[in-house]
Each structure stands twice: as structure tokens, then as C-alpha cells.
């Protein structure tokens, strides 16, 4: 299509995605406790507050803990599931796969309510591990998607070649399959980690304020008093996500991880 049309389209989307963040970044620089844009001056004090005020960094640490374990759980579900589906013919594997992909086909609020109900029934409501498990299962869709793409791209003849050279089931997995899907596994882990870090509604319904995560903390501030710290934290979140995905893009082939063809 026309080059100018394309440029206009790209500029529109980039502006739309960045404009709110630019305002937030501007607001985070205010020297006083005000939310002016353009800012009254330039100060990094609210970035300092994010790291020194326990009211902010404690939820941040909580979020990091939750995201790490949740992403591990997501990957621990996705890896065996996608591998069995690729390698063997097991009837019910497809059903389990459908369950793994289903959370994204459900309004998030329903998943959250389900988690709340489950942990109440199990009398664990509010315990820190509840959000870890609920996030892990909810986000397993992401590593499942990247691993499925990875395994689809894996030429089955590589496995056959390994077998002609005497490799058996688990050796094939260790020496051929796993090294091949590792970037996809890593990408899936990263996607799950970042999304868990940002997830609000499930965290709110499972642990709420008893094990406050950063999104829950921000939401509380959104309702009961804005502060420029929220802006500085938001900027840090976005910068972190850009950094992580840039690294993924630098180390691996991002278009391919997201489902483009092998060619090129």
C-alpha cells in the first residue's frame, strides 16, 4: 500500500499506545505532590519514593515473588502438555489442551471470581500461595502458545535422525527437543511473568490487601488519593516490560516466537 498511508497508520498506532505513557512520565517528574502535565519542574524524587517507601516497595516485592512462582507453574503445566500433544497420540491430551487455552476465552472477571470461590471452599482465602496458583493456571495459555508454535516449527525428521543414531524417548527430548524449544519456553515464561506482574483482578479477589501486589496497591491509590508515585511506578513497569521484550527480541526471533513462518 501507499507508503504515506502506511506511515500515517503506524504513527497513529504508536501515538495511541504511547500518549498515555508520555503523560504519565511527565506527571512523574513533578517536584511537588501534584499531577500536573506538563510538570511544574523536573525531579526524580518520586522514583526515589518508589524504592524507599515501604508502602510501595513491599507490594513491589510481593508482585515479583508472585510473578516468579506463577510463571514457573505456568511453564510446568505448558511444557509437558505441549510435548505430549506433539509427540504422542493421547486422546484426552487435546481436552487438557483446550482447558489450558480456555482461560483467555473467558472474561477475566469470571476467572477471578472462580478463584475466589475455590479458595474460600478450600478455606485458604487470602493466603499468598493462592494468587500464585491462580495466576499460574490462568497464564499457562502463554507458554502453551509459544511452545506449540516452537514444536510446530521443529522438523520431525530431526527426531527421526536422532532415533536412527540410537537415541530413545527421553534422550531425544533432552538432546533434540528441549534445546530447540528453549527459546520458546523462555519467551513463554517471560510473557507469563510480565502479565502476572501486571494482573489486577485475580490478585484482588484472591489475596486482596492481605498480600498486597503492586496493581492492587495502585488501584487503591487510584480510588483513595492520587500520588505522583503511581506515575513513577507506572513508568518503571512500562520500562521494565519494554526492556524484557527487547531482550527477548534481541536474543530470539520475535516474529517467529509470535507465530510467523520459519522462512526469511
Amino acid at each position: 500500500m501507499n507508503v504515506w498511508l502506511r506511515r500515517a497508520m503506524f504513527a497513529l498506532v504508536v501515538a495511541y499506545l504511547l500518549a498515555p505513557l508520555l503523560v504519565v512520565a511527565g506527571v512523574s517528574l513533578n517536584p511537588r505532590q501534584v499531577l500536573f502535565f506538563p510538570p511544574e519542574g523536573v525531579s526524580l524524587r518520586w522514583y526515589g519514593t518508589a524504592f524507599t517507601d515501604p508502602g510501595w516497595y513491599r507490594p513491589a516485592v510481593n508482585s515479583l515473588i508472585v510473578a516468579t512462582f506463577a510463571a514457573l507453574i505456568a511453564v510446568s503445566i505448558a511444557l509437558p502438555l505441549s510435548y505430549v500433544l506433539w509427540r504422542y497420540r493421547v486422546g484426552y491430551a487435546k481436552v487438557v489442551m483446550a482447558l489450558g487455552l480456555a482461560p483467555f476465552a473467558l472474561p477475566p472477571v469470571i476467572t477471578a471470581l472462580g478463584a475466589l470461590a475455590l479458595w474460600i471452599v478450600l478455606q485458604s482465602y487470602g493466603r499468598p500461595y493462592t494468587v500464585v496458583f491462580s495466576h499460574g493456571v490462568f497464564l499457562t495459555t502463554l507458554p502453551l502458545a509459544t511452545l506449540t508454535v516452537g514444536l510446530q516449527n521443529l522438523n520431525p525428521q530431526l527426531v527421526e535422525a536422532a532415533r536412527t543414531m540410537g537415541a530413545t524417548g527421553s534422550t531425544v527430548f533432552r538432546t533434540i527437543v528441549f534445546p530447540y524449544v528453549r527459546p520458546y519456553l523462555l519467551a513463554g515464561f517471560v510473557f507469563a511473568f510480565v502479565l502476572s506482574l501486571n494482573e489486577y483482578i485475580i490478585a484482588y479477589m484472591t489475596v486482596g490487601f492481605t498480600f498486597e501486589t503492586l496493581p492492587v496497591k495502585i488501584f487503591a491509590s487510584l480510588r483513595y488519593g492520587y500520588s505522583p508515585v503511581m506515575a513513577s511506578i507506572s513508568v518503571l513497569f512500562f520500562a521494565f516490560a519494554v526492556l524484557v521484550f527487547s531482550l527477548v527480541g534481541r536474543m530470539g526471533d520475535l516474529p517467529r516466537l509470535l507465530g510467523a513462518d520459519e522462512r526469511e
Binding site: 501486571n198 503511581m230 507506572s234 513497569f237
Partner: peptide, 19 residues
Amino acid sequence: YLVLVLASLSLSEVIVAFA
């Protein structure tokens, strides 16, 4: 562009609402 899209996708709904 993909990095920007992924970063925006992962952005918390809370932060989006705030922004």
C-alpha cells in the same frame, strides 16, 4: 513495533486506567 505492542499488552489494566 512488536516490542511496543507486547509492552502495551502486558500493561496492567490499573495503570492503563490511571494513565
